[in-house]
């Protein structure tokens, strides 16, 4: 399996999120400032909107930006864990996790090689072999359900048991990576 060196890292995703969010906040302030006595031009889409409507518009954009960032953050974490998996498989490292990963990569299946799955193979191995990472693995597994909901168009009403936001997701991911000593972010 050849890995992509240009994949977006967590810090790339976070930077993109921050820049987008800052731009939206700035645009909101500019638009709100154009109401009443302040001068300045605004996009025609805001014409005749009240302050509440402008705020609601930008609140919705920020919420959507948060959701897109959540999706990208979990996708980036998935990429980092998969790249680490294949580096351990190909690098022939001797530690127990690398040995376990190699064992998984050799499991035969009906159509050739087994398709390595993030949850049941990679995360499960980390949870079993690094007990101190188990709680963090559980948190990321919960976040994967959220990612799944986002990636599939949010067509059903989900029950997650907790709220997800980019800051919380970044914490979940970085804490897991610390526990499993994954540095290739």
């Amino acid at each position: 399996m050849k890995t992509n060196p240009d994949r977006p890292r967590l810090e790339d995703v976070w930077e993109q999120y921050q820049v987008t969010r800052d731009s939206i906040v700035q645009a909101a302030e500019h638009t709100k400032g154009s109401i009443a006595f302040a001068s300045g031009t605004t996009h025609p889409r805001f014409f005749a909107m009240s302050l509440d409507e402008v705020e609601e518009f930008f609140r919705a954009r920020l919420d959507e930006t948060d959701r897109q960032a959540c999706l990208s953050l979990v996708a980036s974490a998935e990429a980092a864990l998969c790249v680490d998996f294949w580096e351990r498989v190909h690098g022939r490292k001797k530690d127990p996790v690398s040995r376990a990963f190699r064992g998984i990569s050799r499991i035969p299946c009906a159509h050739g090689r087994l398709k390595v799955r993030l949850d049941e193979h990679i995360l499960q191995t980390w949870a079993e072999m690094v007990p101190q990472a188990k709680a963090r693995v559980g948190e990321l597994r919960g976040a994967l359900k959220y990612r799944h909901w986002l990636a599939h168009g949010r067509w059903w009403v989900p029950k997650f048991g907790r709220q997800y936001d980019p800051t919380g997701l970044l914490r979940i991911i970085t804490e897991l990576f610390k526990k499993v000593k994954l540095t290739a972010l």
């Binding site: 605004t42 005749a48 909107m49």
Partner: peptide, 12 residues
């Protein structure tokens, strides 16, 4: 009436 403080005009 929706108000006088709106974007680009003096009332809506």
């Amino acid at each position: 009436p929706k108000g006088t403080l709106i974007v680009g005009a003096d009332g809506r």
